[in-house]
């Protein structure tokens, strides 16, 4: 009889320990990982970045310099000359770095908002959150965009700081293609779009020559629909005899 009672007590105590442990780890001290769980604001940052990339694509991330008005759109000249029989002068170099920098500037506010919103959300859940300054870097890479965020945060005593947001985007490839075309334009006065399209079958590269010597280039990703347009004016010939 005593033995049975002892076993019963041990079983009950064991169950109570397990339940208590579950209560402690799941409810009293929830796991506040910086990843996809409690703080998770990767989705928010990704949305902000994607929208910014789409907006910046319209002018290749360039908001100064000479432009060409084409079908209601101001298209930036990446290479330009007013001379006849001469190749163009590059107007904007290091396009990838420039786009990267402009992207960082344009999403700065959005990233801060994403962070603040998530901190508030955690606080409303009853968690003790100590937030810090948000700093981040944007990296355009082959086939993707990577955002490294540094935001020192304490959630109920647990400390987190670094977070990486990555998502697929063809923007780097498109900017590299743009650089290639500008290289051809500045050196030879024209770019072989057939050859480029054959080497990069995921992209449709077209050019349209205007009457005063400007060429409008369009690079379009066939799968995602992302599109970049830019202009060049190189090695032009006058109408008729000089």
């Amino acid at each position: 009889m005593e033995k049975r009672a002892q076993i019963a007590i041990f079983v009950v105590v064991g169950i109570l320990i397990v339940v208590a442990a579950l209560v402690v780890f799941l409810w009293i001290k929830p796991s506040a990982s910086f990843g996809r769980g409690v703080l998770s604001f990767e989705g928010c940052v990704q949305d902000v970045a994607t929208d910014s990339i789409t907006a910046l694509e319209e002018n290749v991330g360039i908001d100064d310099g000479i432009t060409y008005r084409f079908m209601g759109q101001e298209i930036p000249y990446l290479c330009y000359t007013e001379d006849y029989y001469k190749t163009c002068i590059v107007q904007h170099a290091l396009i990838v770095e420039n786009f990267q920098r402009k992207l960082k500037e344009s999403i700065s506010e959005g990233v801060q908002e994403c962070y603040s919103e998530n901190v508030e959300r955690l606080k409303k859940k009853g968690l003790e959150v100590v937030s810090g300054d948000v700093d981040f870097d944007v990296f355009l890479e082959l086939g993707r965009v990577r955002i490294e965020i540094n935001a020192p945060t304490s959630i109920s005593g647990s400390k987190f700081s670094k977070l990486s947001v990555e998502f697929a985007s063809p923007i780097y490839d498109m900017l590299t293609l743009t650089t290639t075309i500008v290289q051809y334009e500045s050196r030879f006065g024209d770019a072989p779009v057939d050859y480029i399209t054959n080497l990069y079958p995921d992209y449709l590269v077209t050019k349209f020559k205007m009457s005063e010597g400007t060429t409008i280039y369009t690079i379009k990703n066939k799968k995602t629909g992302d599109e970049i347009k830019f202009a060049s004016r190189s090695l032009r010939f006058p109408a008729g005899y000089k």
């Binding site: 290479c79 590059v90 990838v96 290289q183 500045s186």
Partner: peptide
């Protein structure tokens, strides 16, 4: 461009 490793003439 020392980061990308590209060279652009006429600049």
């Amino acid at each position: 461009d020392s980061s990308e490793g590209t060279c652009l003439e006429n600049t």
